[in-house]
Design a protein around this nucleic acid. Structure first.
Lengths: 163, 163
DNA sequence: ACTACAATATATTGCGCAATATATTGTATG
DNA sequence: CATACAATATATTGCGCAATATATTGTAGT
């Protein structure tokens, strides 16, 4: 549990939005973990998409997974040891390319994915209800991200100059 | 710069919302740092509020600051060494309570705060424009946070049971 | 074949944070 | 006074990620 219950929402605080969105990310992570525990899901919350991508690919190298997930290669590499330890994936040398190491799902990994799939419908439902309650968090954040990618703060600040 | 340009926005991905909000937090952090550099602000972006709180308090212990900021004591303690190294704050023993160490702003710290203040109005303006463009990110995230605090995912999942 | 370059993997370091444990000091109670 | 308890500070460890550097292997050009 995070120690901070009270988050500054002051608009004059320069990094208010960053901390707010980080806080949301943390709440979700914190609240999802016990759900996973109850459902017998041992997968790290942030590695679910890796398992899914591996399942879709059948087999894949770290670089393949990184591309599929839009994450960095290093990040994927750093996640894999935990999944190996949990016995959810296996690692194999690529006979055709000695640079690559190929990952595959184990039966345990497939079992985890099945559990995740069974859960994901209900979780999506919960999120849809949440969005109906508080507004389209998902869409709004997405729009903000795209806007910042298209035109970063530096340009926006420059454009707001009065001189 | 983060390696991931392409973030999964798939609603079926259980942790999509967590990653989205984290991505937003990162974009803001990344894009704010160079702005600070240009403005001669050396303060770590995430320590701005600490400096502000210290300025308002005049002098304060780590625990005082933690309470004022709604952050954990440990987090404050871990941020302070950097501010000490930068010469923005000083540390003093409390004559009245040997448990406490008192922090104070230095002149350099006050100078940094002045620069931050000068910037903050323009940054607020930029955010207001951004919100006008993409929707009220701030308010929506805040509502989501409050909703999750009031009723965590576990309850929401339980409530969505069909049996 | 040799060289240059691209892709992949690995290792190391650092940031920001949480969690935990321990030491120190103050306060209140018997 | 002694003991228990609360508050504060410090140290250590771990997580998740980025950044950087280096090694290895494949590929293309000469």
């Amino acid at each position: 549990m995070p120690a901070s219950t009270d988050i500054s929402t002051d608009l004059d605080d320069i990094s208010f939005l960053g901390r707010l969105s980080e806080a949301l990310s943390q709440r979700i992570e914190e609240q999802t973990r016990p759900l996973f525990d109850d459902a017998g899901i041992t997968v790290p919350v942030r590695s679910c998409s890796l398992l899914t991508a591996l399942s879709e690919a059948g087999e894949a190298s770290a670089a393949d997974l990184a591309r599929a997930l839009g994450q960095s290669h290093q990040l994927v590499v750093q996640k894999c040891p935990a999944l190996l330890r949990l016995g959810l994936i296996t690692q194999h040398a690529d006979p055709a390319d000695a640079r690559r190491k190929i990952f595959r799902l184990t039966d345990a990994g497939r079992d985890q994915l099945a559990r995740i799939d069974a859960y994901s419908a209900r979780i999506s439902e919960v999120y849809r209800a949440l969005f109906a309650e508080v507004g389209d968090v998902h869409g709004t954040i997405l729009k903000a991200l795209n806007a910042l990618d298209a035109r970063p703060l530096s340009e926006r600040i420059a454009g707001s100059r009065t001189d």
